[in-house]
Write a protein that binds this DNA or RNA. Structure first.
Length: 272
DNA sequence: ATGCCCCCGTCCCGGGGA
């Protein structure tokens, strides 16, 4: 099974590019972020007419996540679990008791072909420090708690999406220029690293420990032409998924098309 | 030091993105 993740920066503005990529038999499951589409406006018919099952959770203007799959999509969950029952005070991930549930459409989880997959659009967090950065870190704590619960199921799990975290300096064309940014700050990197420490593997680094592999290039200042990229789109695999990992790659093709997303797909293949 | 570019909404700007 081939599972991909792609921040498309508006599913409607990118519909032809996305459907073209899917029609090229690039993957079996696509985890989509930044659909920017309310559920009633999601182009569901286009996906189903092309033979794709689709699940989506959106809001007006911003955010929004979806999953397209050749196989049936089962047991859909459209957000991280709510407070407070699932989040006991004193949890090592941090004190998040008593906070309001997240109203932003950034998370969608489902079972496909026996694999539990989540499409994740993690908050950007800029400017940092500030309330948006606090929201990012809080969101990462809640994701970690869910990630622990998923490990305990002992299912193969893939957490895929736009994490808005540049894990290491090698994942950035200009680490000095990005110092202090919410995507590189030590708190963001530490929260990302905790996901690895509890048992998930960064699929790309599992197979390519040292190379430069970008997944995002800004629209501005000729970033794509200069290869001024960063690696912020990730596939995190539970041990049961890692055992089956056969291949991982980033497909730079869609980033070079006319009117592209600023992100390009990352893809992995699991043995049957 | 700042903006470059792109998308959305009911909209010819401002917010958000990364």
């Amino acid at each position: 099974m081939r599972i991909a993740s792609w921040n498309v920066n508006s599913v409607k503005a990118r519909l032809d590019i996305v459907m073209g990529w899917l029609e090229g038999d690039a993957c079996d499951v696509l985890l989509i972020q930044e659909t920017k589409s309310q559920d009633e406006n999601f182009p569901e018919d286009i996906f189903t007419a092309a033979g794709w099952n689709v699940a989506f959770h959106g809001q007006k203007s911003y955010n929004g996540v979806a999953i397209a799959s050749r196989l049936p999509i089962e047991d859909v969950m459209t957000r991280l679990p709510e407070y407070p029952a699932e989040y006991p005070a004193g949890h090592p991930a941090g004190d998040i008791s008593g906070k309001e549930p997240d109203e932003q459409a950034r998370y969608l989880e489902a079972t496909i072909g026996g694999v539990r997959v989540a499409t994740i659009y993690l908050p950007n967090g800029n400017p940092a420090p500030g309330p948006k950065f606090d929201y990012k870190l809080d969101w990462m704590r809640r994701l970690e708690i869910r990630a622990v619960a998923l490990l305990e199921t002992e299912m193969p799990v893939i957490l895929g999406g736009d994490f808005n975290v540049i894990p290491d300096d090698i994942d950035c064309y200009d680490p000095a220029g990005w110092a202090g940014d919410a995507l590189t700050r030590p708190e963001s990197r530490a929260a990302f690293r905790r996901l690895l420490n509890i048992g998930y593997s960064d699929a790309l680094r599992a197979l390519y420990p040292t190379g430069v592999h970008y997944s995002y290039w800004d629209y501005q200042a000729g970033a794509w032409q200069r290869d001024n990229g960063v690696r912020i789109d990730h596939l995190l695999l539970s041990p049961e998924a890692l055992d089956r990992l056969e291949d991982v790659s980033i497909d730079r093709g869609p980033r070079g098309l006319e009117k592209p997303s600023d992100h390009t797909p990352i893809l992995c293949q699991l043995r049957a």
